[in-house]
């Protein structure tokens, strides 16, 4: 089987996903379709690893969070991902990490879907590499927005028509699926998301965003505590 593309998707887009295309049988992969039509089986993300926690009473199941300029990715890594699980438990947080992983879904009830990532590989990276990922992801997200806009112009969005415009088969299929499955796709939201992310890369041009690469450790720690609080709040919400 061919290798699955590692999509560049911000947490802010990925976490908005509530559509899954399930593969039939073991050999066919499943995909999470984001509102911008990314048809994600595998992702490549870079961000700040903020916390790692063993959430299993008996064995080992780690939950970790990786923050990017737009939100937070949730990772679960267990005994079947031995190498990553071990690596995760040995990394001191916070630090910049790159993760390749598979999109996973959790459906607590009908119509409700949460996405997470099952990491395949994790490596620490530099701030400079993180910035490049942000840029690349901004660019790919913008490409998707443009493709969705093209599809919206069509009477009925169509994979072949999108392909003719130069988009990949995967993205074309994802966009057709997204337009079918999402009530309304808030393109403005994702444009804003890109704009905010770009601010991280242009410190001289605008006011500084709240996470900056060269700030001191104390600030980062405070922020992480903040993040954890936020996380607890959202978890409570989900359980209610």
């Amino acid at each position: 089987m061919k290798r699955q593309t590692a999509w560049r998707v911000f947490a802010g887009e990925f976490n908005d996903s509530n559509v899954e295309v399930k593969g039939e049988g073991e050999m066919t992969p499943s995909f999470v379709v984001t509102p911008l039509g990314a048809k994600v089986n595998r992702l490549f993300i870079i961000g700040v690893l903020t916390d790692v926690e063993n959430i299993s009473q008996e064995g080992e199941l780690l939950r970790a969070h990786i923050s990017d300029p737009t939100g937070v990715f949730t990772l679960y890594s267990g005994q079947y991902q031995k190498e990553v699980t071990e690596a995760l438990s040995n990394i001191d947080v916070p630090t910049f990490v790159a993760v390749t992983g598979k999109a996973r879904t959790y459906n607590p009830e009908e119509g409700l879907m949460y996405v997470s990532i099952r990491p395949e590989r994790i490596l620490e990276v530099s701030a400079d590499i993180r910035d490049k990922w942000i840029f690349e992801t901004c660019k790919n997200t913008k490409d998707r927005i443009e493709a969705v806009m093209e599809a919206m112009k069509m009477d009925e969005s169509n994979v072949n028509e999108l392909k003719k415009l130069g988009y990949s088969r995967e993205l074309s299929e994802g966009i057709v699926e997204a337009l079918k499955s999402y009530e309304n796709i808030d393109l403005k939201k994702y444009v804003t998301l890109i704009k905010e992310s770009l601010q991280y890369l242009r410190p001289s041009k605008e006011t500084l965003p709240d996470i900056k690469i060269d700030k001191d450790e104390k600030e980062i720690e405070e922020e992480i505590i903040d993040d954890k609080k936020k996380e607890k709040v959202t978890i409570k919400k989900k359980r209610n």
Partner: peptide, 19 residues
């Protein structure tokens, strides 16, 4: 290697024209 600030500026510009 690429000049990330430069590229980011360009992309911001393109974004302004998008919507």
């Amino acid at each position: 290697d690429f000049d990330i600030q430069d590229e980011a500026d360009k992309l911001s510009q393109e974004l302004e024209e998008l919507l």
